[in-house]
């Protein structure tokens, strides 16, 4: 308990950083991932190629490397950004590749007749995708999509290695003050478990709400 209460403000601020990283990256990765999935099913070959290339590159690269690139390379190549934002960008780009593949899997569960009916009514490709296919696709992949976002939440700890102030670095702060690293890690684990619970509750709620429609 001393480990926690002796460093409570440190603990809470660091989890605040984790939540910040997660929320921003989750929103960005969901938007980008859906756009990428749309590109991968588009009738334009160049769009499909970009989508496929992106997924191949980002999904096959270790997250540590992606974050290394942004932490070390980005500022040198382009312009200065704080580490926090660089971490958000890296996490978003990396996670978007996984979101894309999950959503693309969802698209294949939507029967071809749905898109045909939309096209027969005069809706264009973008409207058919955004109004008919994607809403149903996302509904059908809530469990794996939640898993990808939970993985993102936990991946935020990788950013600790790049001087981002978040929960994964808590044990080091405790260690420097002579506290028990092991106990600190247990508290961090508990913190993450508590953070993930709302996500699973949200997933279950959405699944229940949308079950009628399928």
């Amino acid at each position: 308990m001393d480990v926690l209460f002796g460093n409570l403000s440190e603990f809470l601020t660091r989890f605040g950083g984790t939540i910040g990283l997660f929320v921003l990256s989750a929103i960005a990765s969901l938007i980008l991932g859906v756009v990428l999935a749309a590109m991968r099913v588009s009738p334009v070959p160049a769009m499909r190629a970009v989508g496929t290339g992106y997924v191949t590159l980002l999904r096959n690269t270790p997250l540590t490397l992606v974050l290394f690139f942004f932490a070390l390379g980005f500022t040198k190549l382009f312009f200065y950004l704080p580490f926090f934002l660089l971490a958000v960008i890296g996490l978003s780009l990396y996670t978007a590749a996984f979101v894309c593949e999950v959503v693309r899997g969802g698209i294949s569960t939507v029967s071809a007749g749905q898109a045909e009916a939309a096209r027969a009514l005069g809706l264009g490709f973008t409207q058919t995708l955004s109004l008919i296919v994607l809403p149903q696709a996302v509904r059908s992949v809530m469990p794996p999509l939640t898993s990808v976002q939970i993985a993102l939440l936990k991946n935020t700890t990788v950013a600790a290695g790049f001087s981002v102030f978040e929960a994964g670095g808590f044990y080091r702060a405790v260690n420097e003050q002579g506290g028990s690293t092991l106990v600190a890690l247990l508290w961090v684990a508990l913190g993450f478990i508590i953070l993930v619970i709302p996500l699973t509750v949200l997933q279950r709620r959405l699944e229940k709400r949308w079950s009628v429609a399928r």
Binding site: G113, Q114, E116, A117, A118, A120, L121, G122, Q136
Partner: peptide, 24 residues
């Protein structure tokens, strides 16, 4: 295929064997 085709399709109603109502 394209926006011109979509415009013409809007004038042609179609009813399918499997209904294809938008499930959501």
């Amino acid at each position: 295929e394209g926006s011109e085709l979509a415009k013409l399709r809007a004038d042609v109603g179609m009813v399918f064997q499997q209904f294809n109502l938008f499930a959501h």
